[in-house]
């Protein structure tokens, strides 16, 4: 399997099927935590870590536990609980190990559990059928790569969006449109722009 597969997986997850703008996953933190650009970057970092590790874990659980026992129908509950446990573990680890890291990322970790992007990407990896296409072990690589791409896409969009919102603060917006409504319109225009990236891979 050539390395381009991974590259293509990253690019397509990041730009062509952007989690926030084209797949509508993780809209809540997108709207909630994007007023300042450094906040957005911190959130992006935490999401990247949890998304990649979470995808790998759920993938392994699906193909090495659920599939052999033919109980794939419990995947939803298994995935959410595994991801939630992962976040708890990571948070605990960071609490114990590094104050600095906790200050940088710890604050976002609780926000991540119910970030539907994490669970969404984990589910997508299974639905895409990488394991059927590339074999279980190589498929894991592709799944991790596309999770990484999705996280990069999330970070990119949330960062760009926060930068726009910083400017928007200063703009003279009609009272009814202030806050979330105008942000959604901005997001819509961004989504239009991202539609133009279709077909670059």
């Amino acid at each position: 399997m050539s390395p381009t597969v991974f590259f293509v997986a990253i690019i397509s997850a990041m730009l062509i099927n952007n989690v926030v703008l084209l797949r509508f996953l993780g809209v809540c933190p997108f709207l909630g935590v994007s007023k300042r650009s450094e906040t957005a970057l911190g959130m992006g970092g935490a999401v990247t870590f949890v998304m990649v590790v979470g995808s790998v874990l759920t993938y392994l659980i699906y193909y090495y536990v659920l599939e052999p026992f033919e109980i794939t129908y419990i995947s939803t509950i298994a995935f959410i609980l595994v991801i939630a446990s992962l976040v708890q573990l990571v948070e605990m680890f960071i609490k114990k190990v590094s104050k600095k890291l906790y200050k940088a990322l710890g604050i976002y970790l609780p926000l991540i559990v119910t970030n539907c992007a994490i669970l969404g990407v984990a589910e997508t990896n299974i639905r895409e059928g990488y394991a059927e296409e590339f074999g279980v072990m190589s498929g894991l690589g592709v799944a991790a790569a596309s999770a990484f791409g999705a996280a990069l896409g999330f970070t990119l969009v949330i960062f760009a969006f926060s930068s726009i919102r910083e400017r928007l603060e200063a703009a003279n917006v009609p009272a009814a449109w202030k806050g979330i409504p105008i942000s959604l319109i901005v997001a819509g225009i961004m989504a239009l722009a991202f539609l133009g990236l279709e077909g670059i891979v």
């Binding site: 809209v27 809540c28 933190p29 709207l31 909630g32 935590v33 007023k35 300042r36 906040t39 911190g42 906790y102 200050k103 710890g106 604050i107 609780p110 926000l111 559990v113 119910t114 806050g179 979330i180």
Partner: peptide
Amino acid sequence: AEEVVDKESCTACMNY
């Protein structure tokens, strides 16, 4: 921890 989350718009996500 420094409070960086914008509480007002945090309503968008009623996180448990």
